[in-house]
Write a protein that binds this DNA or RNA. Structure first.
Length: 500
DNA sequence: ATGTGC
């Protein structure tokens, strides 16, 4: 038997057997595919994958199995979903969305991810591309200097234990009150940058120790701080509500809860692995550790997860402050004067208690979004007043050399995807493979030639995040746009990137 | 993603 390096193969004894992705799914419409009950035993609901026919070919069969695995969990509603940027994750696929009945269902850390409240924020400026391009190298250097990045990086801010408590409990609100931003920043964060119910008693000493020196740090991997410009407007009315116009410079921040969230996830995974046995829940994969939503174990995780979510908002808020300071230094003007206001901040790794209409009935569910962005439509009370008539801003980062997109939550989202859309381009190559395939310096030179300045802690970071390791962000975004769950508003092009 | 392995 000929060995293949294709992803569509699996070990079967010594042979590798090709698994045809098309035979695993049933086409429902151009961008919707069903993974039928029976794909694996004990599925309670079908799976549903939102991809174009072209993107379907790039989905790993193991990712399909992960979507099906989630469909076996107690209390799952409607179907186990995955967005067009779906790929293999810990237990749940990244790009996965699953809602569980608040009484009969479960809560699972695998459905949130290790980087709790990894998310994206977009800061507007009133600067034009032409004003920023000549100074981009100085600006990227300044941002790189002011916002610590890289694995294990430490913040310029020395948090006391009390301040750490406040970051966990109050999120962006605390950071603003401590002088790192303005009140309007908080109003333009999902959930006002703070989820209620956070409880410090479920955050370990170890998680605190890791989190204490890291408030206001970028981290590593796909996290970045990027200077961009708006090159295309798709929806004039929405763009106007979002304060966006062609040629305008924006800044995008992508990062999460750093070591604190990682430790909280690790700690509670241990406890929930025990709980699975205690409550006799049958799971097809150990990585799907979970507990009944109302159990002590699940609620302890949930309350700790809320601490990590709030920490991540404080983190992005602090980074916003230093971003403003960096611009002030380079352009010798006030941040206010440069119109540096927050457009919005989304969480794309989080579980939330939400009310949804299911089969004509209103129901409380724990919506797990793991690499998926909330996308509430116009009129929803959770959408900030300034955007209420348009829909919630949905921020979709591309890779280093490719466009990012600003969308708005649209009507179909509530019926089709529990008010959710995609979260990014979606990785198609492992970090190890990327380092074999690409050289950091040559990728950096290529990007430079395209007018994109990159500054990273190490060239290998650039290789691992090379544009070629991601799907096309435009292709991914087109799927959610065509489905009517989020509508394209604007496209932004990178000119400068600071990375861990 | 992550003091990038137990």
């Amino acid at each position: 038997m000929v060995e293949s390096e294709d992803t569509g193969t699996e070990e079967l004894g010594t042979e590798r057997v090709h698994r045809d992705i098309k035979s695993m799914v049933r086409k429902l419409s151009d961008n919707q595919w069903e993974i039928p009950i029976g794909h694996i035993p004990n599925m309670r609901v079908p799976g549903r994958l939102f991809v174009s026919e072209n993107l379907l070919g790039g989905i790993d069969p193991d990712t399909i199995d992960q979507i099906a695995n989630v469909a076996t969990l107690p209390g799952i509603q409607k179907y186990s979903m995955a967005m067009p940027d779906a790929h293999l994750g810990y237990g749940f696929a990244i790009g996965g969305v699953a809602a569980f009945d608040a009484e009969e269902g479960v809560i699972s850390p695998g459905g949130v991810g290790f980087d709790i409240n990894c998310g994206v924020r977009l800061i507007r400026t009133n600067l034009q591309k032409e004003e920023v391009v000549p100074k981009i190298k100085t600006l990227v250097d300044e941002l790189f200097k002011n916002v610590p990045s890289g694995v294990g990086s430490k913040s310029r801010f020395r948090a006391s234990d009390r301040e750490l408590d406040s970051a966990f409990l109050e999120g962006a609100k605390w950071a603003v009150e401590a002088g790192y931003g303005v009140k309007a920043d908080v109003e333009h964060c999902e959930g006002n940058g703070c989820l209620e119910g956070a409880d410090l008693s479920h955050v370990s000493t170890k998680a605190r120790a890791r989190g204490k020196p890291q408030i206001g740090t970028l981290g590593s991997g796909n996290h970045f701080l990027e200077v961009q410009y708006v090159d295309k407007i798709y929806d004039r009315e929405a763009a106007s509500a979002f304060g966006l116009e062609e040629g305008q410079v924006t800044v995008m921040v992508h990062c999460g809860s750093r070591g604190a969230g990682h430790q909280i996830c690790t700690d509670h995974l241990k406890e929930l692995s025990q709980a699975v046995k205690k409550y006799g829940i049958e799971i097809p994969d150990k990585q799907l550790a979970c507990a009944p939503a109302q159990s002590r174990e699940a609620q302890n995780y949930f309350k700790a997860m809320l601490c990590a979510a709030n920490y991540a908002w404080a983190n992005r808020q602090m980074i916003t402050h230093w971003t403003r300071e960096s611009f002030e230094k380079v352009f010798s003007r006030d941040a206010d004067d440069m119109g540096m206001s927050l457009l919005y901040d989304v969480a794309h790794n989080v579980a939330k208690l939400e009310e949804h209409n299911i089969d004509g009935r209103k129901k409380e569910v724990y919506v797990h979004r793991k690499g998926a962005t909330r996308a509430f439509p116009a009129g929803h009370p959770e959408v900030p007043a300034a955007y209420r008539d348009v829909g919630q801003p949905v921020l979709i980062p591309g890779s280093m050399g490719t466009p990012s997109f600003i969308l708005c939550g649209a009507k179909e989202a509530m019926d089709v995807s529990f008010g959710s859309a995609c979260h990014g381009a979606g990785r198609i190559m492992s970090r190890v493979q990327a380092k074999k395939e690409f050289q950091g310096q040559s990728i950096k030179d290529d990007l430079e030639a395209q007018g994109i300045t990159v500054r990273a802690t190490h060239p290998s970071v650039i290789a691992e995040e090379a544009p070629g390791v991601y799907k096309s962000s435009s292709e991914v975004v087109n799927v959610v746009h065509e489905l009517g769950i989020a509508r394209k508003v604007a496209r932004v092009i990178p000119i400068g990137v600071a990375k861990g």
